[in-house]
Amino acid sequence: MSWDQILNLLISALFSIATLALISLGLAVVFGMMKIINLAHGEFLMLGAFATLTANRLGLPLWLSMVCAPVVVGVIGLVLERGIIRHLYGRIIDTMLATWGISLVLVQLVVIAYGPATQGLATPLGSFRLGNYSVSAYSLFLVAAAGGLVVLTYVLFMRTKYGLMARAASQLPQTASALGINAGRINMLTFAVGSALSGAAGALLAPVVGVVPSMGMAFIAKAFMTVIVGGPLVLSGAMSAAALLGSVDNVVSYLSTPFLGQGALLVISIVLLRLMPNGLSGKWRRQL
C-alpha cells in the first residue's frame, strides 16, 4: 500500500466513524439518560437536514443554516416531549408506538411541504488532491464537527449543574426527586438536548446525503445498533461503538463492496452482543 492509499483509507474510516457518531449521538442521550426508545430519531435527523435546506433557500449562508437546524429540531423535540412523550414515561411499549406514530406524521408533513423527491444541497469546500486521490474537504470538516459535538455533549453533562442533575435523575429518579430535583423539567431539557443534537447531525449530513423525507429510515437501524452495542455509558459507550463499527464497515467495504461492509457491521454487532450482552461499556467504570 502506498502512503496516499493509506491516508485515503484512514480519512474514509474517520468519515464512517464520524457519520455513525453523529447519527447516534442524540439517540444515545435520549435512550441512555431517559430510557426512551425514540423511533422518530431518524426523522429528527431528517428535520435537521430540511431545516438547513429551508434556511439556505431562504437566503441564509449554508453555515448559518446549519446552525439553525439544532435550534429548530430542539424546539420541535421540546414540544413533542411536553405534548406527548412526558405522559408515557415508564411505559416503554407505549412510547415506542407513540414515537413511531410521530415519525410517520413527520415524514408525511415533510412530503406535503416539500414533495417526495430528493432535494440537492451542494457540498461546500470543494476537494484537494492527496497523491492519486481526490479528497472532499467537507468530509474532514464533518469529522471535526462530529468531534466538536461529542466534546460539547461531554461538557454539558459533566461540567454543568444541569448535567449533574440529569445524570443523578437518570440513575435514581426517586432519590433525585427526594433531594429536590424536578425530574419532569430535567427530562424535558434532556429530550430537547437529544433532539437538538440529532438536528445538528442532520444539518451536517445534509450536504453529503440526499435530503429526502424518507432519509430517516436509512439511519435509524445503524443508530440503534451503535447505541445498543455501546451499552449503558451514554457517551464513551456509543462513541466506542461508532469507532469500532465504523472501522469494520470501512475496511470491509474497501476490501470488498459497501454492501458487504454493511453486512459486516450487522454481523459484528450480533457477535458482540452475544459475547457482551450489556454492550461494550457494560463493565466500564466511567461516568458518562
Binding site: L164, M165, R167, A168, Q171, L172, A176, L179, Q287
Partner: peptide
C-alpha cells in the same frame, strides 16, 4: 441510594444544587 456512577463529591454537589 447513593448515585452509583457519580463521584462522592458529585453525590454531595448534586444535593446542594438541587437545594
Amino acid at each position: 441510594q447513593i448515585f452509583p456512577r457519580l463521584s462522592v463529591l458529585d453525590n454531595l454537589r448534586v444535593a446542594a444544587i438541587a437545594a
